[in-house]
Design a protein around this nucleic acid. Sequence first.
RNA 1: GGGCUCAUAGCUCAGUGGAUAGAGCAACCGCCUUCUAAGCGGUCGGUCACAGGUUCGAGUCCUGUUGAGCCCGCCA
Length: 586
Amino acid sequence: MIPTIAQLKIQFENALVAAFGSEFAETAPLLVPASNPNFGDYQSNVAMSLTKKLGKPPRAIAEQLVQHLDVTNFCIPPEIAGPGFINLTLKPEYLETQLNSIQSDPRLGVAPVPTPKRVIVDYPSPNIAKEMHVGHLRPAVIGDCIARILEFVGHDVQRISHVGDWGTPFGMLIAHLRRTYPEALSCTESLDLGDLSTFYREAKKQFDTDAEFREIARQSVVQLQAGDEETLRAWKIVCELSSRSYRKIYDLLGILPFIERGESFYNPFLPEVVEELEQRGLLVEDDGAKCVFLEGFTNKDGKPLPLIVQKSDGGYNYATTDLAAIRYRVQVDKAQRVIYPVGAEQTNHFAQIFQVGKRAGWITDEVEFVHAPFGLVLGEDGQKLKTRSGEAIPLKELLEEAIAHARKDLETRIQEEGRQESEAFIENVARVVGIGAVKYADLSQNRTSNYIFSYDKMLALQGNTAPYMLYAYVRVQGISRKGQIDFEHLGADARVFLKEEPELILAKHLLQLSEVLAEVAQDLLPNRLCQYLFELSQKFNQFYDRCPVLQAEEPLRTSRLILCDITARTLKLGLSLLGIEVLERM
RNA sequence: GGGCUCAUAGCUCAGUGGAUAGAGCAACCGCCUUCUAAGCGGUCGGUCACAGGUUCGAGUCCUGUUGAGCCCGCCA
């Protein structure tokens, strides 16, 4: 199905040429959704933009254009309003046809992109030698969402986690492993060392209090980089332990599996990267370090800022690894678009490595490397979210608390309503609502700004929250239960008829899904999808309030059932693209 | 000193160069003998930080000012 706006655009382009000549073939019709429902569904602002070029008043231009415009298949006759807006209102019959074709389409009218790209989304990319905390929330949630959306619209998506699995912090963990589980090093079977966070805390405590331990840790780093076999084995055990431990939280959060390709993966390529930069004449030695001097970046003294790719001690750093990853993703992975959903504080870093990647000839005009930055998670005081003792809040605790809040709300309601529910039901609803609320709160705000984390707000039953949307979905399921409706078998002659205002408003919104997804796939701003789903829930609730479904006469009853069905499927699909589950009852 | 991001209703936030700047929360007023109240309708609430500029048209683009956050040489 071709999106309505795309079809209208073609008609406007034809009309521009027919009315004003072939030199207007490239003129954009400036077609956008109407700013106000009173003006119809779409509006073209092109007439005003052509006043100078044509030397005529905009209303006259609009009239001439409309005379050559053929949109009778879609719209009632266009109206010219204000200074020269061309307002378009879709015909109910057109909307009915579109909805009828969507009803039997599992993709709800969203056609896969004609030219799929190979896309790499680099997330959640945490550092292994740390306990998972609130700072790990956004990259996982946003990265997962972006990957799901791009995949759904038809791209070939690879999720790659560029985990920090190399470097100095590992010494501490390896040294601790040696002390506490020496048998792990000689044993070929994998050992269950229990919880990583306990292991990490013990190691950290040793490191902070024991000078001898610190020395062993430092030695371990040297041995690791020298390729000592036993140390490598210890390193591998720590990586696996970490990966398993992280996976538990990702599973709880509903983050789909991704490939782990950490910094260590690029170790063999680092000398080549530096060598290639040298060959390109980009490398300068400064204070013993090998650097690329950046264009447009200066230090505090106003001198060009270097990007250090090899330290004076011969070691490499994260910039080198990131450059190696850029090179590998272009040359081996053949990626056409590489997306980094990473905190805004690394904006400079990405601008720098992308610049060097371009100057080195790895990033060409055929590939797009894009940093999708996001803001911080703040506490309700507007400061960085921390525990009372000033530490970052462990992610596990944060999620468990969200689930506990959701459970408390649910239990209160069950009691008030005198319902009887099983423990399994309560547990599942609390989990879906709690996790969904955390993810929705994160995704529903403009990605680039900081956001304030509040259990009360994200779990509120009214407003732009996960529970509100889940409830809209549950309402449809309530209708099908009550009426014993099987939405998959409404009959071959089931048709949609749009008569009442709330039906038309809902129908128009349902048909905008492709436009919204195309936009999000381009701009990587999931809050636009959230906004769409919130408005859909509102419009459904208005329909539900004013248009009886089960009690309506046929064929209206079936028509309204179809609207309910498409709404529920759109909500389910939209929420699944955000990584949020739905519930049949709550 | 330089760079990036941000400043919109009491609060939290949307807003794609277009018409009268929108939601939610809070406050106040209504609506359950109805498939439905975790819902719906309504009222109140604005110098879009400030000053210029570009444009037929600026919350949106440009310049400057003020304020906030983040970053700026061998950590990632």
